[in-house]
């Protein structure tokens, strides 16, 4: 399963690679990283059918997670990827907006990796 992680913090790559080191080693998941909404869209345009799940932060400079979500849902990618949004604690406004735009699931910062792993099992 290919997962696209979108966040403006570059260390998120190391973090995910370490948190999922066993799963990666067992080839259960494959991670790709984009450090902005624009980068993420660009990647999706070139690898249309590969990504199964998109995990995106909302607060990002430039294109925000919300805007990215809107564009992904407009593009009707096949198969439609699961989009999981990471919202800040108590940020009801962005939560509702993302829900309205068709976000499939939510995670609250700070990310609970055990919970994320559970969710991933359900997706695959």
């Amino acid at each position: 399963m290919k997962i696209l992680v979108v966040d403006d913090e570059t260390d998120i790559q190391t973090l995910f690679e370490q948190r999922f080191r066993k799963e990666i080693r067992q080839k259960l998941v494959e991670f790709v990283f984009a450090f902005s909404g624009e980068d993420a869209l660009n990647y999706l345009n070139h690898h249309e059918h590969e990504v199964v799940l998109i995990l995106s932060d909302i607060n990002m400079p430039g294109m925000s997670g919300i805007e990215l979500l809107r564009q992904i849902k407009q593009k009707h990618l096949t198969p439609p990827p699961v989009v999981m949004m990471i919202t800040a604690y108590g940020d009801a406004e962005n939560f509702n907006m993302a829900k309205q735009l068709g976000a499939d699931d939510f995670l609250t910062k700070p990310v609970d990796f055990n919970l994320l792993k559970e969710k991933l099992k359900l997706v695959s």
Binding site: E9, D11, Q18, R19, N59, K109, P110, F113
Partner: peptide, 17 residues
């Protein structure tokens, strides 16, 4: 708050790892 939250998350995560 936002700016402190992010590095703290990293600190917590990496120390757990």
């Amino acid at each position: 708050a936002h700016e402190i939250q992010n590095p703290l998350n990293f600190v917590n995560n990496f120390s757990e790892i």
